[in-house]
């Protein structure tokens, strides 16, 4: 033993280098291990592959999440906190799969449902802007029937505008640091088309684009924010899309980091095939 590692004698106690190293290691490792043990599963490091569910109040986001799990319309109330659920790709199939084979197919993904109340939209917006979270895609859900009323339309468009702006900001940051910044796919899911008052998706698409354009115009013409320019780096007002015109088109947004598509469906009548296949594609890409 003595021949293998050098020894010192100090106050009559013998120290071997091995023991010294081991104890050092222990001292270093204990806090790390402890934190692992104590914090366990509740660690804050975000899941690697997230599909974000956003949209105005009462659109059916929570219902969609639950539909993927239960394959039926489950009763819900207004959400006040986000919830992230780990799903296996089999959840995207039309019928409820058996529990056993869930691990057989593909990598699981996370679906993050966020509240739609105007005061709680930062949950969704920070998910996009947070550089550590890898957001694979965004499902923006809206109520195709309620959108007829002006206040609801304004609300829906305003949230969409903020969301697109957040995506754009993220894209600008990303393309400065990396060369391979891909646009984020965003699905506008027009829910509740089982209702006879529901607008067709083509109509919603054109209405959203023109309303977004108008919003861009008034935002540009509007007053300055208080405090704008004080810390002039990030808070500088940014407009959605290019600053040459107030027009907004889905194609035009592509170069600003978002790939928009639009599909009607209904959770109530179970016609969510378009959305689920969109999510599958999103996972494969």
């Amino acid at each position: 033993m003595a021949s293998l590692s050098p020894q010192w004698e100090f106050l009559g106690i013998q120290f071997s280098l091995t023991i010294l190293l081991i104890s050092l290691l222990v001292v270093v490792l204990i806090p790390i291990v402890l934190s692992r043990v104590l914090v366990a599963s509740t660690s804050k490091t975000g899941p690697s592959s997230v599909v974000l569910l956003a949209g105005p109040r009462e659109a059916g986001k929570t219902s969609f999440l639950l539909y993927l799990q239960e394959k039926t319309l489950v009763a819900t109330q207004t959400s006040t906190t986000p919830s992230t659920v780990k799903l296996s790709p089999t959840a995207l199939e039309s019928s409820k799969s058996e529990d056993g084979d869930s691990s057989a197919f593909g990598k699981p993904f996370h679906l993050k449902d966020t509240p739609g109340h105007p005061k709680l939209r930062s949950f969704a917006l920070t998910t996009i802007t947070d550089p550590t979270a890898s957001c694979l895609g965004i499902v923006y859900m809206l109520d195709s029937a309620a959108i007829i009323a002006q206040p609801r339309l304004t609300d829906t468009v305003e949230y969409l505008y903020e969301l697109l702006l957040a995506v754009q900001k993220r894209y600008t940051v990303l393309s400065e640091t990396t060369t391979t910044a891909e646009p984020i796919p965003l699905l506008i899911a027009c829910n509740k088309n089982d209702l006879f008052t529901a607008l067709p998706s083509a109509k919603i698409s054109s209405q959203l684009q023109s309303e977004l354009g108008r919003m861009k115009e008034t935002k540009r013409k509007g007053l300055l924010n208080a405090g704008a320019g004080e810390n002039d780096d990030e808070d500088l007002e940014q407009v959605l899309g290019d600053d040459r015109s107030d027009q907004i088109t889905w194609e035009g947004l592509r170069e600003f980091g978002v790939d928009v598509s639009l599909q009607s469906g209904s959770i109530k009548s179970g016609s969510v095939g378009g959305w689920t296949s969109w999510v599958s594609e999103c996972l494969e890409a």
Partner: peptide, 29 residues
């Protein structure tokens, strides 16, 4: 749940979902 799922409910008479929704938006949020 705070995430908006009705885990269990018992209704003795039909009540619109908007009733509880307005409690959540007005008071909680």
């Amino acid at each position: 749940t705070t995430s908006g799922v009705v885990l269990w409910s018992k209704s003795y008479a039909p009540v619109k979902t908007s009733v509880i929704n307005s409690l959540i938006s007005d008071v909680f949020i």
